[in-house]
Computed example of a mutant assay.
Amino acid sequence: MSSALSAALEVLPAGRVLPVVRAPAEVLSTPSPHVDPTDPAVLQLAADLVATMRVSPGCVGLAAPQVGVAAHVFCVDVTEHPKTRTQHGTFVLCNAVVVEASRNERAREGCMSVPDLTGDVKRASRLTVRGALPGSGEEVTVTTDAFEARALQHEIDHCEGFLFVDRVAGAHAIHARKTYL
Rank of each mutant, 00 (worst) to 15 (best):
H72Y: 11
A64P: 02
F74Q: 01
R123W: 00
A107Y: 12
C75M: 13
C59L: 03
A149W: 05
F162D: 11
L93G: 02
K122G: 04
D77T: 03
P115M: 09
P134M: 04
V142G: 08
E155W: 03
F162R: 15
A71Q: 01
V76Y: 09
C159S: 06
P82T: 02
P82V: 04
R126C: 08
K122E: 15
D116T: 15
V97N: 02
P82Y: 01
P57D: 08
L62Q: 05
D116N: 14
E100C: 05
H72G: 10
S102M: 11
T84G: 10
A132T: 10
E100L: 10
C94G: 10
A101C: 09
E80F: 07
V98T: 05
D77E: 11
T144W: 00
T86L: 14
R130A: 12
E138S: 04
V97C: 06
G89V: 01
R126K: 11
V121A: 12
H158N: 08
T128E: 04
Q87R: 13
E80Q: 13
A151H: 06
V168I: 11
D166P: 12
Q153H: 07
S113M: 09
C111V: 05
T128F: 00
F147L: 09
Q153G: 08
V97L: 07
F164Q: 03
D166K: 09
G131L: 09
Q66D: 01
S136R: 07
H88V: 06
D77H: 08
K122T: 15
E100K: 14
V114S: 05
S113E: 10
N104W: 12
G61C: 07
E80A: 14
V140R: 02
D145V: 12
V78G: 00
L117E: 14
A101N: 07
V69S: 07
D120T: 12
F164E: 03
T84V: 14
G58T: 05
T141P: 05
V67I: 03
A63D: 14
A70V: 02
V76A: 13
E139R: 08
T79K: 09
P65I: 06
V98A: 01
